[in-house]
Design a protein around this nucleic acid. Structure first.
Lengths: 233, 233, 233, 233
DNA sequence: AATGAATGAGTCTTCATTCAT
DNA sequence: TATGAATGAAGACTCATTCAT
């Protein structure tokens, strides 16, 4: 089988894994389920992925890759104000996490791992299989990429005046990212039709974006969120 | 054995579980480990907790209880501006998640569960043992409590002018919460001594808080964060 | 507590056990279930019965006692032909097994045990707790009692001519008993509304009794089954 | 591995299970014992049988299959009178139950299950694993097969005059089956060398068969039991 | 007599992973 | 590459039984 075909099958397995991990969760998904759904044998999955953790790290890698492509897509278009970029990013990020629950979970999980990895004591408790995974090692190299682009976006905003000049780019971007990460998880409670809590999903998103913008806004305004959103699709 | 003693043993088991889940993770911790560490028999853990998931839900319940007590502690002191309350909350929340990684994880996990629970299709995939857990059912009842207090804080801020009057309390509070949730996880990557990323932990926190305040600020300023923080400890 | 009261509680436990063993089966019934249903503590059941097997043997003993009382009841009335006695016995036995599924099961089980007990090799495999049970030992002594009475009934029939004189009492009685034992179990399949099997429960019983009588009948007839049945209630 | 080999291993496991269930009993036999005795790993037994109950149901299925083959073997030979067939059947059945205690137990157990299964209330108490077992479902379909053949035998007897014409085939056959079912169990008590009960195994069997025949006999006699028995071996 | 917390041996069952083919 | 039978370590959970009170 040529390399192209090999990659195809590897992708197939990964896609199936994404589907199953999303619906049933990592722990509840058996390697056999993955194989069955992909119409291949159980053994073959181990030809393409060293083990289950490795498969999950491959998924995480894909999550970061897709996230990065979102960042790049927004970043590469010239002439946009920095705040507009961040706004677009926010919309895309929220869509990304809503459409790919497992991706956000994988990213969340990976960031937890990085925290452990950077702590000499906690590092020992990390499953050795994760450490050995090529995908994990690759992730360690690339997981700052999104941050770097995001920081660039903020930097542009600082320069073009769409973002308040007194802000620090790194701090600002990671704070924005914090917000975006929390959103998907809070959708569960927020979406619930509680008697006393009147907030609903439809209301939250625009308000959330507006707050994000207000937090950053400089004297020169970015285009209206609605307009931005429209331009994204 | 008097009820007090019975409760004590239940708490002992829970405390041990918190310790082990924190250091080794939920999946890697055996019920037998918990029993051994608590100097009791394996069977007794099942006398106090129906099963492992139930134990985890008890832990989650405790996480929410402690979080709620943080909210209440800040809320009950009269005479503070709303923005000050939110600021204090932010500091306490960040401390809470940093000091109790497992609590934040449990809360994150529970919110993911709530999302599944509210989706007819995804609900089926939830482990029945979770659904049957009394602690889980209790959590469904109380998990809005923190949100309600937080919304009250924002409402106070809207009235006293410390928070911009055009904001909507619910939307605003949940957006604040989003920020707080993401922080702990991003500390992993942020804390890493990357060559190109200059942001460090010491820098991030105050900047993060500052941004949060700027996002909300009305015409009347709350007291300085530093002062607030000092008063908390 | 006076002996009378003690016996009362012991009977209560036994009655509860009968109820639960009947509905859920021996293996699926926990000692705790028994205690709970009897509104006593788990520990107390062990005061009245050495262990679970002992409780089952007590149940078996009661089954044999009740069966024996049925035999005696029929036997003690003078003036009946032997065949009539056997007929009455058949009716009563079938009622007994239908109303007390667990009794028949216990009797069946005990007879299997006796078979094992009489085989030097298989005897070793019997749970020692059974062997140690006073109820089991008692059962070994009395389990022939029903047979003895039954044989007497046949003997009477042989003498009074209601049963064919060429038959041997022991062989005949145990053959009758075989029939009666099988009936309860076959009611499951027979009761099923199969498309091709037309036999129904209502039809089977009288036909069964008729065949039993025909098997034994001598020149002098016993009263009609219907009449006999009527006299029983 | 070819299908033949796969079937072989499944049979091996089943044979081992039959051996162990027979000697130690179902409850006392561990799945690990079965695996060890079959020289395979514990896990492999679960590859061939979903769980322990499923294995027992497979055993029960085999019991019914073997029983059915006995019925068919006798039924297929033309020219025999119906009573002779029943007589042969009785001999074979008694041999079957004596040589395969576990088979009879399984059949007895299954018939109890069918009774529960047909009662809406009791059905709930059946272990779900049993209900899910393919073998159990298959048994529900086939468990009338033996009955059907037996009824045919009686029907033949009614036509050829070897069985009394006034009898009803279904009722008659199931009554015969009742007798046969009880026999194995009663051998325990009967076989015991009681001081007062003189019946012994050697005496019982021919007498039992004789009574069975007398119960059915029409004007035309079937061949002698002894001759029949001889022809069977 | 009575309680019910505590024990711990016992077992079923799962499933990631391997390997002969 | 591909299969799927086979492995076996691992772990959740049960429950009869005991015993301090």
């Amino acid at each position: 089988m040529p390399t192209a075909a090999k990659e195809k099958k590897g992708k197939l397995i990964l896609d199936v894994a994404i589907k199953l991990f999303t619906s049933k969760g990592y722990a509840a998904t058996k390697m056999e389920d993955v194989a069955k759904e992909a119409n291949i044998s159980k053994g073959l999955t181990y030809f393409y992925f060293k083990n289950k953790e490795d498969l999950y790290m491959a998924l995480t890698k894909k999550a970061f890759d897709e996230l990065k492509s979102i960042f790049k897509e927004i970043y590469k278009v010239k002439g946009k104000a920095g705040l507009q970029m961040i706004t677009e990013l926010a919309y895309s990020y929220l869509d990304f996490t809503q459409n790919h629950r497992i991706y956000n979970e994988a990213i969340l999980n990976f960031m937890g791992l990085v925290k452990q990895y950077n702590d000499e004591e906690l590092k020992k408790e990390i499953d050795p299989q994760i450490l050995k995974s090529d995908h994990f090692q690759k992730l360690l190299e690339i997981h700052h990429d999104c941050g770097k682009i995001g920081i660039q976006m903020v930097t542009i905003g600082l320069r073009d005046g769409s973002i308040r000049p007194e802000l620090q780019a790194e701090v600002t971007f990671y704070t924005v990212w914090s917000m975006l990460i929390g959103y998907e998880r809070l959708m569960g409670p927020v979406g619930y039709e509680g008697k006393e809590v009147k907030i609903h999903l439809e209301n939250w998103k625009p308000g959330f974006i507006k707050l994000l913008q207000d937090m950053l806004k400089g004297t020169i305004q970015a285009s209206k969120p609605q307009a931005v959103q429209a331009s994204l699709f």
